[in-house]
Write a protein that binds this DNA or RNA. Structure first.
Lengths: 239, 239
DNA sequence: ACAAAAGTGTTTATATTACACCCATGA
DNA sequence: TCATGGGTGTAATATAAACACTTTTGT
């Protein structure tokens, strides 16, 4: 761990007379695991329930939002170097009336293999998006706050939109990948079956990826490996 | 003025040891005036320069972001009841190093006639978007902060996107309008000439507007008046 | 020889673009 | 009667969708 913002208990801000709300960052981390969209949440023993919450913490002064994001992500989950994007800033309708926070939300994407190398699994839970529902209740009696659920839904929507008109899929894949792996990401996130010939044409018309001339022999018939042309997020005019 | 958040000098937050940044709202108000996209800015005498700034102020605790927005907008400009949309939350790279604010930015749209009824023109300036430029300098020696310029550019981009796939134009028009007025909005904001037959087909395929069966006789040949079908913002699948 | 995933084109339907003339009214 | 903006349809092009069989390898 380097460049972590020094531990700060923020003891000065709990004064009930403070006239401003407290800015905080909350992070929705998505990854594809077992052919499903999954969310990384913190396990938290709170009150009498077993709750899951989004990784998040108070924003420290004199550091940029990005620095605060990196710091909170690493501290809370052990993960570093992810794709991140700001989502929205929510007013947090105080769950417990003792304080007022403003939640600046981000979403992050990780390729599962990278994720497993870095994450601290004692701290986090991997939860299928489809297991999170309107009633705030999951299998195994786990619960999530309604406001966090709303944020996750919003993030999922953003992910779908981005997939259709950017090269964001690169953050859910290894550097080199088979065309079928790319298509799988689209099918899982967009939740629809895609014709592979049409998919191929779409991707190549966008000039999103290129051949590496290497072969992946792990499947029966070896498959060409592709890579993304742009290493940064690229927004395409249409798709 | 009703329901205004009570005046608050926020005297407690200027303590240099406060460990959190100060959340603030900044508002980009767009309107169409003299066939151009214009921005509503505050005139401010600051230091030795004549500056224009975005209307904005610190977020008060225990009020939602929306309530804070309405309050700030009315207090700073006299305007009420506008279309508003949150844009992005920026880290404000302290212009003057004495404090650290986080800027939660919104953009707002007003139809010029409504605007003129409500606005306090002693407080604000109407500035053509095209007169704001990279060098922070305008005609008449007026300046704007670089960070505010970036926010305005971002807002303008958002406006263009929204125009293409939502009914947001309703907030820049009277309740009933001629088709040519609607097309004018599109031509001004998108900055391109549009074929009126194709425009007609596009708008009606989206089911965005309907005829009122009234005629506007103010032009040479009377024109049909239309109105928007949905009174709320509607996002169309494609356009 | 069989199973499994890779690879590859054409046809059809839909959506978008380009384009020009007549009409109703006020001055 | 002329100037002004309003009103209207069709053909061409581009884009998107539907669709099935062959190939290569491992077992």
């Amino acid at each position: 761990m380097n460049h972590l913002i020094k531990e700060n208990n923020f003891s000065d801000i709990w004064n009930p007379n403070l006239s401003i709300p407290i800015p905080a960052i909350d992070i929705v981390i998505f990854t594809i695991y077992q052919n499903e969209v999954c969310v990384v949440l913190l396990k938290q023993e709170l009150d009498w329930k077993n709750n899951y919450i989004l990784p998040g913490w108070i924003v420290a002064k004199w550091y940029s939002l990005e620095e605060n994001f990196d710091n909170i992500l690493e501290r809370k989950t052990g993960i570093r170097w992810v794709y991140k994007e700001q989502l929205y800033t929510f007013w947090n309708p105080d769950r417990d009336k003792r304080w007022h926070t403003i939640s600046i939300t981000y979403f992050a994407l990780v390729w599962m293999d990278n994720f497993l190398k870095n994450v601290d699994l004692t701290k986090v839970a991997i939860v299928r998006y489809s297991d999170i529902n309107e009633n705030n209740v999951w299998f195994k009696d786990k619960k999530i706050w309604t406001d966090h659920f709303e944020i996750i839904k919003y993030a999922k929507q953003r992910l779908k939109w981005k997939l259709e008109y950017t090269n964001i899929a690169k953050d859910m894949l290894p550097k080199k990948f088979r065309m079928s792996q790319l298509q799988e990401i689209y099918e899982i996130v967009l939740w629809e079956k895609i014709d592979k010939r049409n998919f191929w044409k779409k991707i190549f018309k966008l000039n999103m990826i290129e051949e590496t001339w290497e072969l992946d022999k792990s499947t029966n018939r070896p498959a060409k490996l592709y890579r993304f042309i742009d290493s940064e997020l690229k927004i395409y005019d249409v798709m």
